[in-house]
Amino acid sequence: MDRPAIQVEGLTRKFGRRLAVDNLTFEVPPGSVCGLLGRNGAGKSTAIRLMMNLLDVTAGRVTLLGLDSRRHHTALMSRIGYVADAPLPYDWMKVRELIWFTAKFYRNWNDSRVDSLLDRFGIDREQKIRHLSRGTQAQVALVLALGGDPELLILDEPATGLDVLVRRDFLESIIHLMQQDGRTVLFSTHLLHEVERVADRVIIMDNGRLVKSAAIDDLKAASGMSLEDTFVDVVGTKEPA
């Protein structure tokens, strides 16, 4: 299992003349939880959407679980859990219906995990998605992403705008998933302390470029600084909370 779970090589995307993602190259080893950090507008979301093949690349390539993410898009979708930084689709469905609908796309759908997560989050299965609060919708999105028993979980700003307790639930769910060997998680955020708790690696982006990719322990040992100080050091400005 030495093959990286995520391999990004020379990933580039232009919007008009602006380079949103600029020659991004990094690897994430299997079995790790990796935080993708950067200020607002650093290119995190674009990078994730490129990795998920939801956006065409200008240059470069992405290999997920050993497969090219463009050529093997369909095969990969059933092995990857993804929570987008966007409202849930099909918001006219009930929670129960959306789960039933989503389950059809996965080979290894785990009903008991889905049920226990819904219970833990206290989500009413008969509610329509559009009648749920933003926090509850985010929880449903996470349940859907975890339901397929993903080998790789990619979360785009999963915790933004959620209250402290819901965020804690999120992190706990990630830890639960990690109990299974070889599962890999990548999540983008601008909330540093979230990363420090559960992540063992960080990737820091600024202006579309990679500025750091390292194990957090190594980073701390080498610099003697907290992650926050390192972030300020490499990115230059402190992110307003």
């Binding site: 992190l171 830890i175 990690m178």
Partner: peptide
């Protein structure tokens, strides 16, 4: 390792190390 990781909501790799 699992129990300690869950109790403190930290990465199991960290406890294992």
């Amino acid at each position: 390792v699992r129990a300690l990781a869950l109790e403190h909501v930290i990465n199991p790799n960290t406890v294992a190390r």
